Amino acid sequence: MRIIPGAELRSVLHYPMLVERMRQTFRAGVNAPPRHEHRVDTYGKSDASLLLTPVWQINQSIGLKIVTVFPDNGAQDLPAVQGVYLLMDGKTGVPQAIIDGPALTKRRTAAASALAASYLARPDSERLLVVGTGALAPELIEAHTATRRIKQVLVWGRHLDKAKKIVSRFHRPKFKIEATDDLEGAVRGAHIITCATPATDPIIRGAWLEPGQHLDLIGGSTPDAREADDECIRRARVFVDTREGACQEAGDIVQPLRDGVLTADDIAGDLFDLTRGERAGRRYYDQITVFKSVGTALEDLCAAQLAVEMVLHNDSIR
Results as ranks from 00 to 15, higher is better:
7 A>F: 13
10 R>Q: 15
10 R>F: 10
16 P>K: 00
22 M>L: 09
22 M>G: 11
24 Q>P: 13
27 R>N: 12
27 R>Y: 11
28 A>M: 13
29 G>N: 06
33 P>A: 09
39 R>I: 14
42 T>Y: 04
44 G>D: 14
44 G>R: 13
47 D>S: 14
47 D>R: 12
52 L>H: 08
52 L>D: 01
53 T>D: 13
53 T>V: 13
55 V>W: 00
59 N>P: 15
65 K>W: 00
74 G>A: 03
74 G>L: 08
76 Q>R: 15
85 Y>M: 03
86 L>H: 06
88 M>G: 10
89 D>M: 06
91 K>N: 13
92 T>H: 08
93 G>W: 04
94 V>W: 15
95 P>S: 08
101 G>C: 00
102 P>S: 00
103 A>L: 01
107 R>Y: 14
109 T>H: 05
112 A>Q: 11
114 A>K: 01
117 A>M: 11
123 P>E: 12
127 R>F: 08
130 V>C: 04
144 H>W: 03
155 V>Q: 02
158 R>H: 07
158 R>Q: 07
165 K>F: 15
171 H>N: 14
178 E>W: 14
182 D>I: 09
184 E>C: 06
185 G>V: 05
188 R>Q: 10
191 H>L: 10
198 P>W: 00
199 A>G: 03
202 P>Y: 05
202 P>G: 03
203 I>H: 04
203 I>T: 04
204 I>Q: 02
215 L>I: 08
215 L>P: 01
215 L>M: 08
217 L>K: 00
218 I>S: 02
220 G>D: 02
220 G>R: 01
223 P>Y: 04
224 D>T: 11
224 D>P: 08
227 E>Y: 00
229 D>A: 03
229 D>T: 02
231 E>T: 09
233 I>W: 02
234 R>S: 10
234 R>D: 07
238 V>A: 06
239 F>V: 05
245 G>I: 06
246 A>N: 04
248 Q>F: 12
250 A>N: 00
250 A>R: 04
257 L>D: 02
258 R>D: 10
258 R>V: 10
259 D>V: 11
260 G>W: 09
264 A>N: 15
267 I>D: 04
268 A>L: 07
274 L>R: 02
275 T>D: 08
280 A>P: 14
288 I>F: 02
291 F>S: 06
292 K>Y: 05
295 G>F: 03
295 G>P: 05
296 T>Q: 15
304 A>H: 00
304 A>Y: 01
304 A>I: 05
306 L>C: 09
308 V>F: 05
308 V>L: 08
316 S>T: 10
317 I>T: 14
317 I>H: 12
317 I>G: 13
